[in-house]
Nucleic acid binder design. Structure first.
Length: 110
DNA sequence: CGTTTGACAATAT
DNA sequence: GATATTGCCAAAC
């Protein structure tokens, strides 16, 4: 984890730690980094995520379980497609069983 | 160098 | 319950 200096780097590491078939939220990541409501920075970081390889940004959704950032993917369908590929059911751009699939780094890695 | 905005979230009205 | 406001940090303008 190592919060060197790059906020983004930490975000990427946490996202990489997300288990397959599982999703996380911006707030969860922000919380894990010690912040409380700077989920926007996480979103910012994800904007750069497409530049970095190995960052499963498709596993990051908003606290509502909605695929808000699908538009930032190669194709808007890529996000939903990848999630479904991992066994996650997406309906109307929303993660089904989100409560069960959500993965909190603070809680799991603690 | 000051202002705006961004893949959000939590609180307040 | 839904809309409006605030917080947070960094990058783009």
């Amino acid at each position: 984890m190592a919060l060197d200096k790059n906020f983004f780097q930490d975000v990427y590491e946490v996202v990489k730690l997300v288990p397959e078939g599982r999703v996380t939220t911006y707030g969860a990541i922000a919380q894990y980094l010690g912040l409380k409501s700077s989920a926007r920075m996480v979103g910012w970081a994800m904007n750069q995520a497409h530049v970095v390889s190995g960052v499963p940004a498709h596993r990051v959704v908003n606290r509502n379980g909605l695929l808000t950032g699908k538009h930032h993917f190669e194709t808007p369908q890529a996000m939903q497609l990848r999630l479904e590929q991992e066994g996650i059911i997406i309906v109307n751009d929303k993660v089904q069983n989100f409560d069960t699939l959500v993965w909190y780094p603070v809680k799991e890695l603690l």
